[in-house]
Design a protein around this nucleic acid. Structure first.
Lengths: 299, 299
DNA sequence: GCAATCCATATCCATAAGATATCAATATCG
DNA sequence: CGATATTGATATCTTATGGATATGGATTGC
């Protein structure tokens, strides 16, 4: 019969009370079985832990050493239980989130801050990389969820809308179309565009496809890697750009953001995750995102 | 029903095998009770530790954390058992030994070195102090054993002979009695003595008493604190001294050691300890000392 | 020296760990 | 695609063992 935690619990109390009777009282059991359990423990350990002088109980040197360990073990069992429970309840844990720079600035940063505030024990790690790599990371289980615009339909993954976001036209304040009352996509057919490199961005590609659907192939004069640097180029008059509405937060005097009429363009952000049971931290985070989006943009 | 080590042992194996059936085989129990025990553990922890997809078993985030702790706990139980057993067997532990400088030089140092060689895991601490203080240290449990010459009969303490040692006369090589064939104690009645201060040494007092029994009160010309410094004074011709035979190891050209005829003087060294059950380290040490003395001085 | 404690021993009982049989669900294979 | 095998869960029974009660031997305190 191997050592059990019961033995350690009993032993610790006897060592504290230095009395089998008193310890048995504290443990709410009777004295004989307690003596028996301690005896079993001593047999199992292979050394006397107490020195019983039929009137006085005293720890042996071996018992002295064992007590230190026993207490540490019992404490660790307790903390193991607490920690697992906290993780199970989604109160603590690790969260690996894939995203792109533009989404991060778009509002994800605020969402993460709010989540961190509510669940301070959850360690969230952000991985900024191209959407295609994020998809692979999800499949390889090296990330938990991804925030992606225009997520591809991939087997084993599911996407749910995180928040809606419009596409707006960014142009210089002195651009010839700046004062036009109503603007539609087709009006941009002769413009020069500032855009993200399409290889790294599904969003850039979708803009391009929309233009083609509208009957023209956009002339991209300048390609940039970082969405934010679009603002600089546009305001310097290098061309116009179709960007997520949240980019307008990084505005300046020379730039103007205009909504296109009758546009089907969208920069909606989706949460992508594996199509399976997730850990509670992940579930809690997704639920939190849902509520957060609803609160910020009701309806 | 609280968490037991059985739960952790079962859990660790299931986590390793990621299969209840395989784990049950390894644990030499059938599968249903194993499932039951894991279920009980999960209930107790308050979180799912495995994610069962009815075909695949996988650790949850909580289970992942719990596994780390479980393994650490099981390992610590094992090391606690080993350590207590080693202490119980006297292979390791602490040993507090009281002694005096002269006994240490007399042969105790060699004994300790031999013991350390045989039981390298036993940490022995030496406390050099006056015999009276050693007795008190023993009673107060702040020391385990003491090496003492002429131990007083004290209630609760027992003394056993560690090794026999003669008393020899130390005198200058040019002393007038240096060439006398046979010397008895009474021959020293007109000599000047170099001796230890009697307050700090029972041995010094016993020498004095023996002289009185032999019919004279020894004239102590020089009192010293350290037994070894007697050698210096005697060789410089400041007087004679009755010292433990082992002192003769610290001889020089000018000094001569002579055995007294028909002498009842003895410098036997005793091990003193409490009259109760001792830890195995102590018992082993005492036994070791006994054998060591027998080997060095058979008969 | 008697009563009061304290731990150990002996015996009994109730609980729970484990075994057996079976089911539902899913992956494997002809 | 259906038959089969494999996996974990459920139900029921058996048995091992933790715990209770009664008692004894040893020591201490009055």
């Amino acid at each position: 019969m191997p050592i059990e935690l019961r033995h350690l619990r009993y032993f610790a109390v006897v060592a504290e009370e230095l009395s089998f009777t008193a310890a048995a009282n504290r443990l709410r059991i009777s004295q004989p079985p307690l003596s028996q359990q301690i005896r079993d423990l001593e047999d199992e350990v292979g050394a006397a832990l107490f020195q019983r002088t039929s009137r006085r109980v005293r720890l042996t040197a071996a018992g002295d050493s064992f007590l230190v360990h026993a207490r540490a073990i019992l404490a660790q069992v307790d903390s193991a239980r607490r920690e697992a429970q906290a993780i199970g309840a989604g109160k603590t844990g690790r969260l690996l989130i894939g995203t792109t720079g533009s989404i991060l600035r778009s509002g994800l940063a605020d969402l993460l801050a709010a989540h961190r505030h509510e669940y301070p024990e959850v360690t969230s790690t952000l991985i900024e990389q191209a959407p295609a790599l994020q998809i692979r990371a999800l499949q390889e289980r090296s990330s938990d969820i991804s925030f992606i615009r225009l997520p591809p339909a991939v087997d084993g993954l599911v996407a749910t809308l995180a928040w809606k976001e419009d596409v707006v036209l960014a142009m210089s304040r002195i651009h010839r179309l700046a004062n036009r009352k109503r603007l539609v996509l087709r009006d941009l057919r002769d413009e020069e565009f500032v855009a993200l490199v399409p290889e790294s961005s599904d969003f850039a590609r979708s803009i391009q496809e929309s233009c083609v659907s509208a009957g023209f192939l956009p002339r991209v004069a300048h390609e940039v890697v970082d969405a934010q640097s679009i603002v600089g180029l546009v305001s310097a008059g290098f061309g116009v750009a179709l960007v997520p509405a949240s980019i307008s937060r990084f505005t300046n005097r020379e730039i103007l953001f205009r909504r296109l009429a009758a546009s089907t363009l969208s920069a909606d952000v989706y949460i992508v995750r594996r199509d399976e049971e997730h850990s509670q931290v992940v579930r809690t985070f997704i639920e939190f995102s849902r509520k957060y989006a609803a609160r910020r943009a009701p309806g």
